[in-house]
Every structure is written in structure tokens, then in C-alpha cells.
Amino acid sequence: MSDDLIIGNKRFKSRFILGSGKFSLEMTEKVIRNGGVEIATLAVRRVNKGGRENILDYMPEGITLLPNTSGARNAEEALTIARLARELGCGDMIKIEIVRDTRYLLPDNEETIKAIGLLADDGFTALPYMMPDLTAARKMEKAGAAAIMPLAAPIGSNRGLLTKDFISMIIGETDLPVIVDAGIGRPSQACEAMEMGCAAVMANTAVATASDVGAMASAFRMAIEAGRTAYLAGLGRVLSGRGEASSPLTGFLGE
């Protein structure tokens, strides 16, 4: 049976979304290959003139690009960045990222909800990065989001699933794929997110700051696959206050 990740009208086999920041360009292809990655995020920035190296030259063929709107402080700026990304030839999937807070880099849910409407009207498939709040997630779903991307912890912090319970609420109460974005620091945390029922995990810093980035990309791929398989298998129940033997309590030798 196929178990594809469906975002908008696209299907993916991989549930590991890679952020492409902080890597040397030469490592990009290896990380994508080792991670079995099919979707990679990018940012839009001013470029210097001349024939400088471009990250697109290092992206393997067939990869789906997911530009973000980082740098946007409100919905209108997010729309402008999304339109620039579209001119750069990335397709219509956009990760909406609207951040005004400069210390914790937390997303502005209110502006993000507004941006989803603007982008959806302009033909984009919008994936909002958000502060895990069920009310906001419901509004994002209604506004036309194609997935919900709640943060686990502040961007780049590697602190893990600090918002676990709140992400669980969104998984339980919305019909959209929930993709944990930001803060995942270890493969075990990515695995746990997948066991909870997240549709995918996005990571960047956790891989980019590892001593061996290629090996860490492989570790994330395996952890995400393990977590997904466990979720589909249905986790075993938890007992409290007592134990339960795994073998029959009869037929002991010498009885």
C-alpha cells in the first residue's frame, strides 16, 4: 500500500524536508541524497552581481523547491517575496514565514493567517510556519493552507519537541498534514514527532551543525521512516502502576 505525503496536488515518498541553509554548497547534494530528501527549502535574498555560485546549481534534478518568505514582517511582504520566488522558477509551493520577533524568531500567527488568504488568491500552495496554537491552525486551514508547520522550539535552537502537546492538538483536530518545522535537534526527536502522527519533519540546523552532516542526514532519514512506520503500526499501550508478564503465568518448571 502506498503511503505518500500529499501536499496540495503533489505527492511525495519522503517525509524529510530539508532546510538548505548553513551548508557549504558542495555538501547540499550529498545531504539531500543521504536524507532521501524530495523537498528542500530556500530563501530569497539580494544577490551580488556577476557569476557567483548559485544554490540552484547544487540542487539535484527532480527536487521540489519550497521557498520561504523569511525576511517578511507582514502579510504583504510575504506575498511580494512569494511572487519573487515564483519568478525565480520554483513552482507555486511557498512556506510562509512571517517573523517580527528578533530574539526568539517566533512567527506572527495573525499576519500569517492573513498571508495565507493573499497567497491562495494568487495561486500559491501555502504552507504556514506557525506558533502551535489550535485556534490559529483552524483559521489557517479555513484560509486555504495546504499544510500546517508548527514549531517544536525556536528556529536553529536544536532544543527538540518543547511544544509537543500543542502540536498533538493540531494533529488531532485538523485534516491537514502537520509538518514539524524548527527546533528539532536530534533524530530521536524527529522519530517522536512522526510517532505522534506528524506527516513530515523539517530540519536544517540539526543536520548542518553535526560533525558529519552526511551521516546525520542518513540518521534523520532512518528516524523519520522508523517513526512513520511506528505510527502506522499503532503504538502499544502504556500501563501505569503495575507490570504485565510477557509469558503465561502458568506452566512454570517444578510446579
Binding site: G19, S20, G21, K22, F23, L25, T28, T41, L42, A43, V44, R45, R46, V47, K49, N54, I55, L56, L65, P67, N68, S70, T80, R83, L84, A85, E87, L88, C90, I155, G156, A182, M202, N204, T205
Partner: peptide, 29 residues
């Protein structure tokens, strides 16, 4: 503040009064 579509590069023009941003993709999360 207005995105110029690629097809309009020949017809759109700029003068000394304008603010122009030229952007591209870079690595990002």
C-alpha cells in the same frame, strides 16, 4: 515594491528615481 515578471524585462524601465531590488535564491530553512 512591484515584482517585474521576466517577460516584462524589455518593456519595464527604471530611472534615477527608482528603488530596485535584484534577488535570487540562497540556502535557508
Amino acid at each position: 515594491g512591484t515584482v517585474i515578471p521576466r517577460a516584462g524585462y524589455d518593456s519595464a524601465s527604471v530611472s534615477d528615481e527608482d528603488t530596485v531590488e535584484i534577488v535570487g535564491f540562497v540556502g535557508g530553512g
